[in-house]
Design a protein around this nucleic acid. Sequence first.
DNA 1: GGATTGTTTGACCGGAGGGTTAAAGGATCG
DNA 2: CGATCCTTTAACCCTCCGGTCAAACAATCC
Lengths: 230, 230
Amino acid sequence: MSGVGGDQPEIDGPQTDADDSSLGVRARSRARIEASIRKAAEEVFAEMGFEGASTSLIAKRAGLPKANLHYYFKTKNDLYQFVLRDIIELWLNTAQEIQPDADPATALAHYIGQKIDLARDRPIASRVFANEVLHGAPRFDRFMRQDLKDWVERKSAIIEEWIGRGKIDQIDPKHLFFMIWSTTQTYADFSIQIAAVLGRRELIESDYQLAAKQITHIILKGCGLKAPDA
Amino acid sequence: MSGVGGDQPEIDGPQTDADDSSLGVRARSRARIEASIRKAAEEVFAEMGFEGASTSLIAKRAGLPKANLHYYFKTKNDLYQFVLRDIIELWLNTAQEIQPDADPATALAHYIGQKIDLARDRPIASRVFANEVLHGAPRFDRFMRQDLKDWVERKSAIIEEWIGRGKIDQIDPKHLFFMIWSTTQTYADFSIQIAAVLGRRELIESDYQLAAKQITHIILKGCGLKAPDA
DNA sequence: GGATTGTTTGACCGGAGGGTTAAAGGATCG
DNA sequence: CGATCCTTTAACCCTCCGGTCAAACAATCC
C-alpha cells in the first residue's frame, strides 16, 4: 500500500543511498520519488510544524499532484513517521568515539564537532526533531523512552567509568549530554536567532567553527580536561 | 477595538498585576478575561504552534465562545502578538547583574540561575518563543534584529571589558550567551525529552537544581572563573 | 429613565485541508 | 497480444477553521 509500512519486505541489495542500478524501472523511480517527497516533506514540516504542514504543499514542492503523494504515503502521519525515522538514525549514530578506553578529551571534542557538523549540514532535520519534542513528542514517545534512553544510559556508563578512573571531573553524565545537545543543536534549531544577533542573514562557516571551538573549550575545561592534541 | 492595539490609553493606576480595585466593573472584567485568554492561548500555541492552534480551542480553554474571543482579539495573529509581547519582557529583563564592575563569577552564576528558574516557572512561555524562532520567526523579526541584538551587544561589551581587565578568559561573549541560553532553555523547551531520558514523567525540583549547579560549574570553570562565594 | 456605548453569543460564510474515488495510462509477464 | 498489476491524476467529499454578523443584553452617563 504505502510502500513504507514495513509490512512488505523492501527490495534487498546493496544499502548505499544511491543504488539505482540493478533495480527495475519501477523500484528505481519509486526510490527517486520517495526521496524527493522526503526532502520536500522535511522542509515543510520544519518550516510549519506537523499541523501547519499541508500535504498539498509538500506534493507541490516534490513536483507531483497531491493524490499521487497520498498514493505513496497513505496519511500525513505516515509521511511524518518516515521523515522522523531518518532523523533518528542521525541521532543514534553519533558519539561512537565515546568508549571506555578512549581519551575523554578527544572523544568529547569529537562528539561536539560531530554535532556541530550535523547542525550545519542537516539543520532542517534537526528542526523537525526539535519541533516534535517541543510539542510534547506525541508521535515519538517510544523512541525517547526506549532507544534514546538506552543510548544515554550506555554512554553515561562509560563516562561514569572515566570518572571512576579519575580521567574526568565528577559530573553528572546525563546532564552533560543535555548540555552538549543543547549547545550544538541551538546552531541548527535557532540559527535564525543566532544569525540575527550576529547581524547576518544566515550563519557562515566561521560561525560554526568558532562555536565548535568555544563549546569544546568551555566544556572540556569545565570538566577538568585539557584540549586534545589534535 | 481589540483593547490591545495600544491606540487607546489603558486606565492608569498602580501597575501591579492584581490591581482589581479602583477600576470600573468593565475594566476589571476585561483584565480578568484578557488574562485568562492569554493563559489559554499561551498553552495552545505552545502545544500546537501558531498554525496548529485554533481560536476555538483557545476560546474553549478560556471558557468563552469563539465569537467572544474574537471580540477581544480581532485576529489570531493579534492574540499571538499579545502573548509574544509578554514573553519578550521576560527575556529582556534578565541579566541585570551583568555589569562592568560586578564580579563575573557571581553575575554569570546569577544569570544562569535566573534562566533555569524561568525554564522551571514559565516553560510554556519559553516553548512559544522557541516555536516562533524554530519556524523562522516570521512574526518576530524586529524583536530579534533590534531589541535582542542591542541587548546582546550591550551585555557583550561588558564581558569584553571583563576580558580586558583579565577578570575572565578570552572567550567570545556572544557565543557564551548562546551557550547559556541553550543550556538553560533546553530544560523548558525539551523537558519532555530530558524527562524521558531521566525515566520520569516530568522534571522535578532536584533536576533543575542539579542542572543549574552543573551548568554553572562547567561554564564558570570553562571560562576560567572560580565558583562564587554564595 | 432613556440614550449610548460596551459585551455576549449562536448562526453563518468562504476557503482550505486531509483524504478518497474512479478512470485512464504504463509496465510486466505469460 | 492480452491479462494483470502498478502508477498517475482530476474531481470530489467532508470537516474544520478563521472570521463576520446581527440581535440580544448589560453597564454607564446625562
